[in-house]
């Protein structure tokens, strides 16, 4: 009865919201969006700081933003500050997980209920390499193709997760993750500060942006994405480690 009431209530709310949005004349119909009215129109044209004309893949050089992947250009350039915050969120989550699950004293692995056989172990080692490499690729080409620091970092983390799953005894050095996390995070802020010092503004792209579409293009973007990838990878690995180990409670 209570559930039915809640169901009717929430679905009713949903329907009301839909109707409200439909009645809203300013709210665009699905698919009927006029990007020209939005700030992202200039992000697409890479002409926030002055009209650049057409941006052509492989030809345009020294655009205000050199990334071919326009989402990346927003994530790590136009709205890089958000991304810094986002990294911080992940950072503090991993801190929190460590605080909550990291019991002082000897830590031991959570014993999994199955015994991985030899094939699994070898296979996962091999797979580990492949996933890791994919992750690195995704990170490095974040400004050109879909992907970037976040999925890449998560891939790195999943490759490490694979090692955890394949081996009961496996534990990485948490301390190492910590250092990596700290260094990557600090470097991100420092890159931002360099922007402030070398150019005028915090997080400003102070390197030449090169030709749109090249691997070595887009100025600091790839660097930042690598840092993000490392940071995300190490943070998520740290979280996984904490979930898979437990303190000597007894």
């Amino acid at each position: 009865m209570k559930k039915l009431f809640a169901f009717v209530l929430t679905i009713g709310l949903g329907v009301l919201m839909i109707f409200s949005l439909r009645a809203n004349t300013l709210f665009p119909e699905f698919g009927d969006v006029s990007i020209a009215d939005r700030i992202s129109a200039l992000f697409l044209d890479k002409s926030v700081n002055g009209d650049n004309g057409d941006v052509v893949f492989g030809q345009t050089t020294d655009a205000e933003d050199g990334a071919a992947n326009l989402v990346t250009s927003i994530v790590v350039d136009y709205r890089s500050f958000d991304t810094l915050g986002e990294v911080t969120v992940l950072f503090i989550s991993s801190l929190g997980v460590a605080l909550l699950l990291g019991v002082a004293g000897k830590q031991k692995r959570l014993a999994l209920n199955f015994k991985p056989n030899f094939m699994l172990r070898v296979g996962s080692r091999a797979l580990f390499g492949i996933i890791l490499m994919t992750g690195v690729y995704v990170i490095l080409h974040g400004h050109l193709t879909p992907g970037g620091g976040f999925p890449g970092g998560a891939m790195i983390a999943s490759s490490i997760l694979l090692l955890y799953l394949a081996d009961d005894e496996f534990r990485t050095k948490v301390k190492g993750f910590k250092v990596l996390e700290s260094v990557a995070g600090s470097l991100y802020v420092i890159v931002g500060l360099l922007g402030l010092v070398l150019a005028t503004y915090f997080l400003q792209n102070f390197l030449p942006t090169g030709t749109v579409g090249d691997l070595f293009s887009a100025g600091v973007l790839p660097i930042v994405y690598v840092l993000i990838g490392l940071k995300v990878g190490s943070e998520i690995s740290g979280i996984i480690d904490h979930f898979l180990t437990e303190g000597d409670l007894a």
């Binding site: 209530l9 929430t10 709310l13 009301l16 919201m17 109707f19 409200s20 439909r22 009645a23």
Partner: peptide
């Protein structure tokens, strides 16, 4: 949540 939903429904009711 319950209160929020209730208030929202009140607000949206009959607005269109």
């Amino acid at each position: 949540l319950f209160w929020t939903i209730l208030i929202l429904i009140f607000l949206l009711w009959g607005e269109f």
